[in-house]
Design a protein around this nucleic acid. Sequence first.
DNA 1: ACTTATCCTACTACATTAGTAGGATACAAA
DNA 2: TTTGTATCCTACTAATGTAGTAGGATAAGT
Lengths: 139, 139
Amino acid sequence: MKLNTKVRYGLRAMIEIAKHRENGGVLQKEIANTQEIPIKYLEHIINQLKTSGLMTNFSSKGSGYILTKKPNEISIYDIYRAFEPELAIVDCTCEHNMCKKSNECPTRDYWFQLNTKIKNEMMQVKLADLVTTKKEPYN
Amino acid sequence: MKLNTKVRYGLRAMIEIAKHRENGGVLQKEIANTQEIPIKYLEHIINQLKTSGLMTNFSSKGSGYILTKKPNEISIYDIYRAFEPELAIVDCTCEHNMCKKSNECPTRDYWFQLNTKIKNEMMQVKLADLVTTKKEPYN
DNA sequence: ACTTATCCTACTACATTAGTAGGATACAAA
DNA sequence: TTTGTATCCTACTAATGTAGTAGGATAAGT
């Protein structure tokens, strides 16, 4: 039950990009420096964030990265999904992978419900909530 | 963000033990058979459950395993902790491992709150809720 | 032309996961 | 008392995932 560094670094990268909304974009180097992420690793993370459509840039050099949506329209779960296909704390909670005993399995329902709650929590909180002052409570 | 098989099998083993409360214990072999867990792997799981104090047996042979507490006094989180030191979805949510930048890190607070919510969910649901008919809702 | 940001593919050390293997010990029944 | 078997205990391992690094290609600003 651990988040990997891609998701954690990815969120921090998105926060950094969101903070530069006014001044039109931020470079890999700046994200790496202020968020203290190895720049060569950040490349992969940025690549996945771009592929997922959460952010983009206009030039292969120097234009900086910008969000494609407003920070209050991007949930933590959106960012999570840039790196993971979906949240599935156990494989059988994935509806594509139902085991044949699932209708007699009491644990399946429990894990599924827990999974849904975690997912909902991550969908309700938006990037904007983390960019504004951290003194604001999130809920 | 995946649960490992030890926790999942461990919960199923505990359910199986709970189901035999009336008739005084269940053997490894029976747990392995009905829950379809490799018996040699189940050995490790049972060993951890015993060490954690959630269940025990009276003899090294044939007495069967029994719970040390009532099923409504054992939470899912208790079982989780038999296999993991604590729930920590990111390392810096562990208060023993605060990074020096934590007071300026907006993601730390978020992950910590999510961690707490997951932990609370797992503490509120008891083994008894999974042993009784699965048609009952858990919350 | 030169510099540098970005892009793209490949590689890798290390840790974790999900088990297996094999023998030692304990105890009950024959 | 021997034998069968449940449990206990330590070690080993194949496969996978994690957290990066390396190196060159491409693109664009100056």
